[in-house]
Amino acid sequence: MSVRHALLAQLAEGPKYGLQLREEFEARTGEIWPLNVGQVYTTLQRLERDGFVESDDVDSGPQKSYRITGRGEAELAEWLRTPPDMTSPPRDELVIKVLAAVRLPNVDVQEVIQVHRRRLVELMQQWTRLKEDEAQYDLGLALLLDAELYRLDSVILWLDATDARLRREAATPTPARSHDRPSPRPGRRMGARR
């Protein structure tokens, strides 16, 4: 998340004051991502230094008005089209926890998975409730909520897949183990219906 480019994008709509920028940012993200005033001003100063924005030098402080420059617009246009770095997997804490649980003896992996799954579902319930309550929510918030729900959903999907994989592993002996048991018994039959 680049605050720098988010501010640039806001200024592309027209000249704005620093405080106004902060309020608009928070409103558009449904106050999910809080932003402090200091952060706004340091970012604006850097942008001005790089020549992406310019201010009317009348006053310094909250009433100072900023507007985007030609370079700033070029920078914004390029940023919009630059893909974020997704090549290396993030070091996800949940993944590490599950991997650890699989290795550790005396730990019920499925129980661990279920704890996380429930927690994630509870989180999703909260987001969904927000979606449901905000009948007239604006587009930005809707997109943001969807993004969050899909992200959590994908984590749950991964947990489900992990769960299923572990069950299969437990049911079918690995080739190494199958030497000891020449006639592998089929796994426990699951419920017959969906």
């Binding site: 279920q114 429930r118 579902v121 999703m124 319930q125 909260q126 899909y150 959590l152 959903d153």
Partner: peptide, 30 residues
């Protein structure tokens, strides 16, 4: 089996091999 769908519910119960194994906490305050 869709978590997005389930998240609409006040309460989500988890079924596994025919048993209810877990359920979500009651909804927190707003």
């Amino acid at each position: 089996h869709d978590a997005q769908l389930a998240s609409w519910a006040e309460r989500v119960v988890f079924l596994r091999d025919g048993r209810l194994v877990d359920q979500t906490a009651p909804p927190p305050g707003p």
